[in-house]
């Protein structure tokens, strides 16, 4: 992990300028290259709004965004977008092509990529999300999870330095979700892909490097998952922490520190062997 690839300073935004209430108020944070940041927070807390600001789809009233050293402005917008890709919360809002492969290729055509270069990129992206068999299908006539995969492929094909996933895995079955999370993790390690995943799934948040909590348009706090789940007792923690709380309620001793599933299995089995 190295220097910041994304710097957000004092970002303030509201949809309706006539209204008092701000949708985002003075949001500041940085993300390092190759880091995985999970953003969590209540419905309506401003996560998707922030995502749209990051890719220049909305303009802040105040504050600035720097991506790979370049400040995001009206003029730099097109250049900066080569570095950052957003997978929308609803994939239907993202589809343009009439076939899955055209749709994934669309973003590449936009950056004037040659056909020879494009074909393997599209195939590779569809393979990563396991949608190769559907390349001739109409993206609007797919199942929910299939749509989400195509939307992800559309961004992966662009090979951005930063990928922003706005609840993009919710409609995947658990096994596909794990596989895709592991594919993303590989890209993070091999190619220093920076990942920003907006999610309500605490298991997804738990595999990140850092969790940022938002509330009513502000950043509440951020820190590694182990710290956040211990400090924020009102958060629904990953399964093992829930089990530990339940055992504690029954007056049982449990490990004090944050525990992974493997650690908990070992701990339970060992404590039994000692007796």
């Amino acid at each position: 992990m190295g220097k910041p690839i994304l710097e957000v300073e004092e970002l303030t935004f509201k949809y309706d300028k006539r209204l008092e209430e701000e949708t985002l108020s003075a949001v500041s944070f940085t993300v390092n290259k190759g880091e995985w940041l999970a953003i969590i927070g209540d419905n309506g807390s401003g996560k998707s709004t922030l995502a749209k600001l990051l890719v220049g789809l909305l303009e802040p009233q105040k504050g600035r965004i720097c991506i790979a050293g370049t400040e995001l402005t009206d003029d730099s917008k097109w250049e900066v977008r080569r570095h950052i890709g957003l997978v929308f919360q609803n994939p239907d809002n993202q589809f343009i092509g009439t076939t899955v492969q055209d749709d994934v290729a669309f973003g590449l055509e936009n950056v004037n990529m040659s056909y020879e270069e494009m074909v393997p990129r599209v195939n590779e992206a569809l393979r990563m999300v396991e949608m190769s068999a559907f390349c001739e299908h109409d993206p609007s006539r797919l199942s929910g999870g299939q749509k989400q995969r195509v939307a992800i492929a559309g961004i992966l094909a662009l090979k951005p330095s930063i990928i922003v996933l706005d609840e993009s895995l919710v409609m995947l079955d658990p096994k596909s979700r794990r596989e895709l999370l592991s594919t993303l993790n590989q890209l993070k390690h091999k190619e220093s892909l920076t990942i920003i995943s907006i999610t309500h799934d605490m298991n997804e948040a738990a595999v990140s490097d850092r969790i940022m909590m938002m509330k009513s348009g502000r950043v509440l706090k951020s820190g590694p998952p182990a710290q956040i789940f211990i400090e924020e007792q009102q958060l629904e923690p990953p399964f093992v922490e829930r089990l530990k709380r339940e055992l504690e309620n029954k007056g049982k001793e449990v490990p004090k520190a944050y525990t992974t599933e493997e650690e908990m299995v070992k701990w339970l089995c060992k404590s039994c062997l000692m007796v």
Partner: peptide, 27 residues
């Protein structure tokens, strides 16, 4: 699998699992 034992019932929730762990004496 780790212990080579079988619990008496199929546990579906954290509450059920907690009961079962106590019952087989793992905690």
């Amino acid at each position: 699998q780790e212990m080579g034992i079988k619990f008496g019932q199929v546990c579906l929730t954290t509450e059920e699992l907690t009961e079962a762990l106590i019952e087989v004496g793992l905690v």
